[in-house]
């Protein structure tokens, strides 16, 4: 960043953000970088921190899913038909079969451990959401910066392409694309193929949201004095793009990728709900909800995966909103 607040030890720093250590000593006033200031603001925002803590918790759950289910449950695809009432196909015990062995109860029909399936569902959900977001952030940033910086024909073509993407009936397209790929393709098969496919579909369709924002920011950054200064010192295009403009785009990139992750979690859940995402028996939250449609008499069956989606998306949204307030205090939202 261009960090205008890095000048330390002057009276100018006696702004409210500066902290006085000791009682008016010589080295009492500390300068803070923009990043530090943003971090301080973020730490004060309790709601955003709660979101962040939940996100970290989720990531840990996803990474240690086998350990957690090993300690507290059963393998996610193991059948427990002794828990199922053969007449109703629902769980034998009341409350959906919730007990100390089955923390969230069992699934109707096969009696799989719902807790393990929700835990494993976090893996798929986060994996796809993270990688799809990364893909769209990379495409969106590169094209957005190029369009904003070079302008002219380049800008026109890229902007038109963004308009086309934004006007596409995304869900229908994504469903269609996820549906036509055969079970074995591109040298991959099974879950790996579906995961790669979903990452590409979701990432490829959501880049224009970031691209537009980055383009707009680049357009205004390009006219700033420090870019003129760099140019008059003899800097060339690539240097200006990567060393002068890109560092100033870190904040919007960070904010909008945090806010894109929950959208992508919902996107993946929707595709799996419709039966074109990850194929069963692999556990996904969307897939579990679509099974739950037929068993509305067993409400816990829709409650746990649904709440898992809701809390995940909410946590990311809270954290993203907090991040935006911290990094861009002028935005009134």
């Amino acid at each position: 960043m261009t960090a205008p607040l890095d000048v330390s030890g002057t009276e100018l720093q006696a702004a409210p953000e500066a902290v006085v250590e000791g009682a008016g000593g010589a080295k009492a006033i500390q300068g803070r970088s923009l990043g530090q200031i943003a971090w301080m603001r973020l730490k004060r925002d309790k709601v955003a921190m709660a979101g962040a803590i939940f996100v970290i918790f989720l990531i840990l759950v996803a990474i240690f899913a086998p350990v957690i289910t090993g300690l507290l449950g059963h393998p996610p695809n193991e059948f427990h038909q002794d828990m199922i009432n053969p007449e109703t196909m629902g769980p034998k015990a009341s409350w959906g079969g919730i007990n100390k062995d089955f923390l969230f109860g069992v699934e109707p029909v096969n009696g799989r451990d719902l807790f393990s399936r929700v835990v494993y569902g976090a893996r798929i959900s986060l994996l796809i959401a993270f990688f799809a977001t990364m893909l769209s952030v990379v495409i969106g940033t590169v094209l957005g910066v190029v369009a904003g910086y070079f302008g002219g024909w380049t800008d026109m073509i890229i902007s038109r392409a963004m308009d086309v993407f934004l006007a596409f009936p995304l869900l229908v397209f994504a469903i269609a694309l996820a549906g036509v790929i055969p079970d074995k393709a591109f040298g991959l098969e099974g879950d790996t193929l579906r995961i790669v496919l979903l990452v590409f579909i979701i990432g490829f369709f959501s880049w224009p949201y970031i691209g537009r924002i980055i383009r707009g920011q680049t357009l205004s950054l390009r006219e700033r004095e420090f870019v003129d200064a760099a140019r008059s010192l003899g800097a060339r295009g690539p240097y200006i793009l990567f060393r002068e403009i890109l560092p100033n785009l870190v904040a919007p990139i960070l904010i909008y990728s945090t806010l894109l992750i929950p959208t992508n979690v919902l996107f993946e859940a929707a595709l799996s709900f419709l039966g074109v995402g990850i194929r069963p028996p692999t556990a996904t939250w969307g897939g579990m909800l679509s099974d739950a449609v037929h068993f509305y008499t067993v409400p816990h069956f829709m409650f746990f995966p649904g709440m898992a989606i809701f809390l995940t998306v909410l946590a990311f949204n809270l954290f993203g909103d907090g991040l935006r307030d911290a990094l861009d205090p002028r935005s009134s939202r």
Binding site: P262, L266, A269, A270, F273, G286, L289, S290, M302, G306, I309, F310, V313, L314, N317
Partner: peptide, 8 residues
């Protein structure tokens, strides 16, 4: 509301 999927 914006964090809830319609299918839930």
């Amino acid at each position: 509301g914006v964090s809830l999927p319609i299918f839930f």
